[in-house]
Design a protein around this nucleic acid. Structure first.
Length: 615
RNA sequence: UGCCUGAUGGUGUAAUGGUAGCACAGGUGACUUUGACUCACCUAGUCAUGGUUCGAAUCCAUGUCGGGCAGCCA
């Protein structure tokens, strides 16, 4: 992107939530805009989360505010530290260079502190900008926020709710609780334990915390309205008993709060101004407001706003279903390059900036839509086209013999690294007697309008010269093993006939062992065969059996010399590729020490080039 | 037969009472040492019916269709 002073400023995204925030900023309702991204550490982040991350961090950066990464870790049964680590890594990767300065972490081990707000006792955990702590060097150890760090405070608020007659201990079993709740079109019935005295509730709740009762025997419930048309207002549970250790809080608790109770209060404790979540929580908003409103809290209360989550064609955007793909070994792991997880997309070679462009571009609405994959692919191609270095590689090689070039002779050609650069640089590639071309780039019986190599035909070897096909060599089975051609060396760049036109230009790699090397290349296709795998009765039945193809490709020798970490390349005419950092052997031997059998590098094809010819 | 929420080209999204626009996809050309990129042009839309208004995608009414809600998940 150009930074010229007279280029128009890029338009900031606009949507109904940003409009609300902008209104609040205009009226100076808050001293600072604070949002949060609140994943539960029970799976890896996926492309749907990217939309939420970009929304929350985007709003923070547009208003010089802050966005806290907070783990909503109130259900130790499903959660694990593996997930808090992967999520933290993925969030930092996605916002790097864009909103790092808005990322809110807290000093390691910090808990909400007693403060005075508007002359009254209060609790608050100040978000500390990561940038402030870590740049240029970390001053103190930091970590993301955890709802589980608020368990003490949450417990105290629960006591307060009981004292105010707004919560009670219920002895109904889970089954009976469900029966008493009624149905959407039928009011519920009051629990027989609904009118216990405050003293009895206090006693029972204290003993629940002390571990006197087994799982499921008692719960703490809000006292709202069992006849409410909104199911979430029928005395929803606040706490349940779970005799299990917590991955972050340790073994201190056997009583764990539920989402609705923990989330709004966590938002309050962190001073969140705008609590943005997806549409399925619209029905919960009255509960969110009820809990906060029942405690007479001294600071401004956070408010919840909801938007439609991202749905992508041919893609599953559900942590639970993605977990199934992992456990059923449909893929190799959460970071399999075919997975729509942030780890998978990163390994696939999708730049974080392209992901941001995409999720920002789809907009934020309350309409439950399905975005076509083409929109995502367009964002990726647009980004990679400007940034990726071009290289020559042949995926499915067939050998060409240039009969007029003597064996051992090396003709050096200049190849452009990236024609999109303002001042493109070049590198040297070797043209030798034998070269590999793509099997697809030759047709013995060409279809109509085919303008690559055919018997008697001419084609240009990119950056080199035009060649003419003279003769085919076949084995006993009639399979072509070699194509014999004449090189028109005077059509090279700078030579008299350089301007000679032919319809086709193809990529190639020298077949001289000094000028190519083998690499494993993994070619991916969509993971599902139907546009909406989530709508399927059994999504495992619509898994694409051809989602992965592995080939041994011939790569231009210069590539191995310049190979860096996580660099994106365009293999000309084939697509964009990235080194697989997990499966590649990183110690690259000198060219001379290479052997045919030592495949050391593995590449993932990020995406193909757009192709208006095939299909 | 409850409550909540939504409906603009094929897809996604803008227009907040005043010219229905943008992106992607699709099509046709131009250019091209990537059948890429780029450029030009084209196709195609306000869920329905009524009302308010000089004027309605926008406001009102009714209807239709879609999504969500009955976890001690989040």
């Amino acid at each position: 992107m150009s930074d010229q002073p007279d280029s128009p400023a890029p338009a900031l995204p606009s949507d109904f939530i940003r409009d609300i925030v902008a209104g609040h900023v205009a009226e100076k309702r808050y001293a600072k805009i604070v949002t949060r991204f609140p994943p539960e550490p029970n799976g890896y982040l996926h492309i749907g989360h990217a939309k939420s991350i970009c929304l929350n961090f985007g709003i923070a950066r547009e208003h010089a505010g802050q966005c806290n990464l907070r783990f909503d870790d109130t259900n130790p049964v499903k959660e694990d530290v593996e997930y808090v680590e992967s999520i933290t890594r993925d969030v930092r990767w996605l916002i790097e260079g864009w909103a790092d300065h808005c990322l809110g972490f807290k000093p390691k081990g910090a808990h909400p502190a007693a403060v005075t707000s508007n002359g009254r006792p209060d609790y608050y955990l100040a978000p500390v900008p990561v940038a402030e702590i870590e740049n240029p060097k970390p001053k103190v150890a930091t970590e993301p926020f955890f709802a589980s760090d608020y368990f003490d405070q949450l417990y105290a608020y629960a006591i307060e709710l009981i004292k105010r007659g707004k919560a009670y201990v219920c002895d109904l079993s889970p089954e009976d609780t469900e029966k008493y709740r009624g149905a959407p079109d039928r009011p519920g019935q009051d629990s027989p334990f609904r009118n216990r005295s405050v003293a009895e509730n206090l006693d029972l709740f204290t003993r629940m915390k002390a571990g006197e009762f087994p799982d499921g025997t008692r719960s703490l419930r809000s006292k709202i309205d069992m006849a409410a048309p909104n199911m979430w207002l029928r005395d929803p549970l606040l706490y349940r008993i779970r005799h299990i250790a917590h991955h972050h809080a340790g073994d201190k608790w056997c009583l764990y709060p539920l989402y609705d109770y923990a989330h709004c209060l966590s938002d309050y404790l962190e001073g969140i101004t705008h609590s943005i979540c997806t549409l399925e929580f619209v029905d919960h908003r009255p509960l969110y407001d009820w809990i906060l409103g029942s405690l007479d809290l001294p600071r401004a209360l956070p408010h919840q706003y909801e938007f439609a989550k991202l749905n992508l064609g041919y893609t599953l955007v559900s942590k639970r279903k993605l977990l199934t793909l992992v456990t059923e070994k449909v893929v190799t792991g959460w970071d399999d390059p075919r997975m729509p997880t942030l780890s998978g997309l990163r390994r696939r070679g999708i730049p974080a900036s392209a992901l941001r462009t995409f999720v920002t571009g789809v907009g934020v609405t309350k309409f439950d839509s399905v975005t076509e994959v083409a929109v995502f692919e367009n964002a990726v191609r647009t980004e990679l086209n400007t940034t990726a270095q071009r290289r020559l590689a042949v995926l499915r090689p067939i050998k060409i013999v240039l009969t007029n070039i003597p064996a051992g002779e090396v003709i050096t050609c200049a190849a452009t690294n990236n024609p999109q650069d303002e001042n493109p640089t070049t590198r040297k590639v070797a043209l030798t007697r034998e070269v590999f071309i793509e099997t697809d780039d030759f047709a013995e019986v060409p279809p109509p309008k085919y303008f690559r190599l055919k018997p008697g035909g001419e084609v240009r070897l990119k950056y080199a010269c035009i060649i003419k096909c003279d003769e085919l060599v076949k084995d006993a089975a009639g399979v072509i093993t070699e194509i014999r051609c004449t090189a028109q060396l005077d059509t090279r760049h700078g030579q008299p006939n350089a301007d000679k036109k032919v319809k086709g230009t193809i990529h190639w790699v020298s077949a001289d062992p000094d000028y190519f090397f083998d690499a494993e290349v993994r070619l991916y296709d969509r993971l599902f065969t139907v546009p909406e795998p989530a709508a399927e009765e059994d999504f495992l039945k619509v898994v694409n059996p051809k989602s992965l193809e592995v080939v041994t490709a011939k790569l231009e020798g210069s590539l191995i010399m310049t190979m860096g970490n996580l660099e994106c390349y365009q293999f000309e005419r084939l697509g964009y590729f990235v080194l697989d950092t997990k499966d590649s052997k990183r110690e690259v031997k000198p060219l001379a020490a290479r052997t045919e059998a030592s495949i050391q590098l593995v590449f993932n094809r990020t995406i193909t080039l757009r192709d208006n010819w095939a299909k």
